[in-house]
Design a protein around this nucleic acid. Structure first.
Lengths: 128, 128
DNA sequence: TGCGTATCGCACTTTTTAGTGCGTTCTTGT
DNA sequence: ACAAGAACGCACTAAAAAGTGCGATACGCA
């Protein structure tokens, strides 16, 4: 019962979505259930081990739901839990800010590639 | 000119505010300029080295402004740059979510201490 | 039989991140 | 004269995070 101490709210959040992969995984899961292999293809640079490990941790934190279909070859699906869904807004913010930051840096001469751009309904409002 | 690649926007954001301390530091700076020592007192568990190091990185990323008053003993002030300010909304979200998460976990029996709770204007609306 | 599939575990190494301890600078207060 | 104060830098160590490589399963198919 080692009394846990946080300095400020954000610390608790980062403990859950921090690290190199968790936020990325969660962002992909925002749009719905995905299989392990799908996630791996969406995030080509993640290793199988990291993917599994991070998903397990997210599961332990009650953010991700893991559904195993008992068949061979294995079939496992991941989705956000209810608690996970409460992160959607935060994740959207984080994505959007990142995209803006990338745009700025590009405008500044940096060569950057962004694989998955959130289709922010680009004010493509009702055509004339 | 090694072409940088991000999987999704959030990755760029986390590169900047990720790590054990940056988001915490930024949250404290949300409320205005602070001196190095003030920050250290606000975050008692950070080491002097980490504080300086993280602030330097945030400065390099154009998020934090560092103002040195050329006097002895040294006097240095930190504040958010304009770009840093654009993170305010994101940081608020992260803080709030963390606080809610802490509340849930407490309700669940965990013993947690939160040092700095954002004074979310606790619906203490106009008194009668 | 031997191959491909989809998911994961495990042992091990490498890389990254964080922490420790000590030195520096002038000035003010005692 | 001496200690304390503020904000570092630097060399070094420790701990945490990520990456590599290999094995397992159990089925369907050529």
């Amino acid at each position: 019962m080692t009394e846990k101490t946080y300095n400020i709210g954000v610390e608790a959040t980062m403990e859950i979505i921090g690290g190199k992969w968790k936020a990325i995984i969660l962002c992909h899961l925002r749009h719905g259930t995905m299989r392990s292999g799908e996630l791996r293809r969406a995030i080509p640079t993640i290793t199988q081990k990291m993917l599994t490990q991070q998903l397990r941790e997210l599961e332990a934190d009650g953010i991700v739901h893991r559904e195993i279909f008992n068949q061979v070859p294995p079939h496992v699906e991941y989705s956000l839990t209810e608690r996970g869904e409460t992160l959607n807004h935060v994740l959207n913010q984080l994505c959007t800010w990142g995209e803006q930051n990338i745009d700025e840096r590009r405008a500044n001469g940096e060569a950057i590639t962004l694989i998955h751009r959130d289709d922010v309904p680009n004010k493509t409002v009702s055509p004339a």
